[in-house]
Amino acid sequence: MVSNLLILYEAPPLALQLLLDGILIGAVFALAAYGMALVWGVTNIINIAQGEFVMLGGFIAVAFADHGLPPLFAVPVAAAALYGLGWVLFQTLIVHVIGRDMFNSVLATFGIAIVLQQLMGRVFGGADRIVESGLGTWSFFDGLVTVVQVKVLVFVYCLLLGVALALFLGRSRQGQAIRATAQEPRAASALGIKTRQIYAMTYALNAAICGAAGALAANAYTIHAYSGLSYTIRSFMIVVVAGVGNLAGVASAAMGLGVAESFAGFILGTQYQIAFVFGLLVAVLVFRNWRLGRQRRTLQ
């Protein structure tokens, strides 16, 4: 551990490398997490199938690359396809668990996750896949800091998608309806908002966001039919830390998580990377609880 710190001390540009890697992978987490926060906030459903949506988007990009099509064109296609899938899943399954105990929805979406995993395994095979984007790499500091261009492109895409989403929710009528439904579904319904349609749209929108994230991620990170869970877990952690209904919070928590993982992996060793992040989550929750407790005492 000390020796790893010494490396950073002797070669400070490496810290920049770790920071960049963290932020770049954090952008992908941010998208998946934002989708999760949206669904959680509006429909009170924790979507466990989040990671599987991401992987499915990734496989669509892989299929594009296999057929000689430019993989980045797969992003809108994946988003559209996943929107459709999300809509169908909502109308057939999720609609039955909405408004019920959260445990029901966790079970239902867990089931969806398993079915999607198996289907992807059947259709796309059990192999690990990655898309070769054909883009290059920028080198700085005599090669000590290298920035993979496709990761930057993924980052920019994620940023644009995030901004578009914020505008949609903030400015459009549909976005307003979504926010109204999240705040008070019965009042929204009384004012003529078709809440069931809003729920369906939110769930489908989340699937589309995940699909786009996956189609982007497949250009830089390996995907596999059965490894969606790591995206689900990270999304969950980010939302727990940032809270639902807070786009800026989710984005900064996601990138903070990416950076924390990078540095923890480097300094403590990769075996402690995930453990450190979970430790951090516990620390955040304990701190929150303590702060809430203090507020409560002040109120009394």
Binding site: I7, D21, I25, L144, T146, I223, Q273
Partner: peptide, 21 residues
Amino acid sequence: DDQLPLELNDMSVTLAKVKAL
């Protein structure tokens, strides 16, 4: 001497060390 996690999809941390050492 890094141990890679089971759910591995990114090795850039280890590779940063390789670059330095």
